[in-house]
């Protein structure tokens, strides 16, 4: 096992691959530090129309609104860039973070009066082991890739026709997670 804490890979999402199985939610509860509570979301995009779904994970903003909004400075940023869940003894349960987050990621535990959010399975990802969600995702909607692999993905799918949107540049602000929005096949050249 490597002892370095420098992560070489990042979470990458191809939303169009999502099959709505919610294995990512089930797997989230299996991360040792998550106390059996899942921290991510899967939405039905068009519930009365088709079976399209999409996951919503913490994008681990470089300048995270949740941490900035926290009056108790309970939300720490790991050296890998992962935005951690609130430190239990600092969190005052004000829910500022949930309101501040542009994606509504932080969840709130009413009984404990504590927020909890995705910490990118920090006990795994600090050693470059994929987080549980990306480990199990059967459709490769969630992948754990190197910067080079992500650059290849971008090159393959960004066809410069202004119809293509990814989180590069950025949906809201710069994030450590790259999201590839629906349209993932539009740059594909058919074999025959």
């Amino acid at each position: 096992m490597t002892t370095t804490t420098t992560t070489r890979r990042k979470l990458y999402m191809e939303l169009e691959n999502c099959i709505g199985c919610r294995a990512c939610l089930a797997a989230c509860t299996q991360c040792g530090g998550h106390e059996q509570k899942n921290r991510n979301y899967v939405y039905d995009v068009n519930p009365l129309v088709n079976s399209q779904t999409m996951p919503l994970m913490c994008l681990h903003c470089v300048d995270p609104a949740c941490a900035r909004s926290c009056p108790a400075q309970a939300i720490q940023i790991h050296e890998t860039g992962a935005v951690l869940s609130a430190t239990v003894d600092k969190c005052i349960g004000c829910q500022n973070c949930t309101i501040a987050c542009p994606y509504g990621i932080p969840k709130f535990d009413e009984e404990e009066n504590l927020m909890y959010k995705c910490d990118l399975c920090i006990d795994r990802t600090k050693d470059d082991i994929p987080p549980m969600c990306a480990s199990v995702c059967p459709s490769n909607t969630l992948q754990w890739l190197t910067e080079d692999e992500i650059a290849d993905k971008k090159q393959a799918t960004d066809v410069g026709n202004d119809k293509w949107v990814t989180s590069m540049p950025y949906l809201e602000g710069e994030t450590h997670v790259t999201v590839n929005l629906p349209g993932v096949l539009q740059g594909t050249v058919k074999l025959f």
Binding site: C21, R22, A23, L25, A26, A27, Q30, S135, V136, P138
Partner: peptide, 10 residues
């Protein structure tokens, strides 16, 4: 390769 559906995970 480590992938599982929600039935497998649980």
């Amino acid at each position: 390769l480590g992938k599982m559906c929600p039935k497998g995970v649980t």
